[in-house]
Design a protein around this nucleic acid. Structure first.
Length: 298
DNA sequence: CTCCAGGTCGTTG
DNA sequence: CAACGACATGGA
């Protein structure tokens, strides 16, 4: 990967295994807006990013991206890690294809997916909201929460965008105010999660140092956080790449590919842990997107 | 109008 | 343990 500045923009060239659309649209994050083909704006870690993936041939090398109005410091501090750009996806793909040859086609379908390394708090709240909701609804609620309680960022053109609210800010929001954001029956879940973080029972940085199962056990002590939501938080918000969230889609896909019969979620999860090991989380995201694309299971 | 959504909880068999 | 309805809200 080559990096250089051009005016106020940052140019990335020769980035392997990265497609901005694959990565943002695969259901792992919710706080972004599509501006045009392969062009997005997004907020994370209190920062705003306008990014465009170049057409092949537009710049001297393929796999090029323009990060508008972004400094090298900002990139190194936030976006490099957010997009997981230090991870070699080539070797991960080899590992997964070695585990099961059929993953070759599954990965080829959306080979530019990367597992975003997102903020713990935002991931936790977003996936508590996600239960029994469709992705567009989740995005809508995350945007509403941000507009009401996030920090303002004033862009160069004068437009105002909002970051996802901090834990301290959401901690001051009443039940009724939360309900106005359309989170419905999840209000007490969100409030309990915030409370447990506020009083120190839950600490994102501390969770990172624990074993996968220990960290998950603690996350699931939050009412409203079950195995699936906990696994999403572990994978997308805490860097546990072995986590394998099994939702309705994954259940259908795994049943179709491996079990050929109705199978319980925890059985599927154990099977995936055995087959895909430390990279189960990556496999999950390739499989999820593949299955959704193919419309597996109606 | 009915059904269901990147689920989880509490209650019954 | 396994099965099942409830839960807010919005879109098909």
């Amino acid at each position: 990967m080559n990096i250089y500045c051009r005016d106020n923009d940052l140019i990335l060239e020769d980035v392997k295994d990265f497609d901005i659309e694959d990565t943002l649209e695969c259901g792992q994050c919710f706080h972004f807006t599509k501006l045009a083909e392969k062009e997005y704006e997004l907020m994370a870690f209190g920062k705003y990013l306008h990014i465009r993936q170049c057409e092949d041939g537009e710049l001297s090398k393929p796999g090029s991206f323009i990060l508008y109005d972004t400094s090298m410091d900002n990139f190194r501090l936030v976006w490099k890690n957010y997009f997981d750009l230090d991870t070699d996806y080539g070797s991960i793909k080899k590992y997964l294809i070695n585990a099961d040859e059929r993953l070759k086609d599954v990965i080829a379908n959306h080979s530019g997916i990367r597992i975003l390394r997102q903020d713990f708090f935002e991931t936790l709240i977003s996936f508590i909201i996600s239960q029994n909701k469709q992705i567009p609804h989740i995005k809508q609620i995350v945007h509403t929460l941000s507009e009401k309680y996030g920090e303002e960022i004033i862009l160069n053109d004068g437009r105002i965008v909002h970051t996802f609210p901090t834990m301290d800010k959401l901690n001051t929001v009443s039940e009724d105010e939360l309900r106005e954001c359309k989170v419905g029956f999840r209000v007490p879940y969100i409030r309990q999660a915030i409370h447990m973080i506020d009083n120190g029972e839950i600490d994102g940085e501390a969770l990172r140092t624990l074993s996968f199962y220990e960290a998950r056990r603690i996350l699931m002590s939050i009412k409203g956080v079950g195995e699936k939501v906990a696994n999403c938080v572990l994978l997308f918000g805490l860097g546990f790449t072995a986590a394998f969230p099994v939702d309705v889609w994954m259940k259908r896909i795994m049943e179709e590919m491996y079990f050929h019969k109705n199978t319980k979620k925890d059985v599927i999860e154990k099977f995936a842990a055995t087959l895909f090991g430390k990279y189960a989380g990556y496999a999950q995201q390739y499989l999820f997107t593949y299955g959704r694309d193919m419309g597996i299971g109606k």
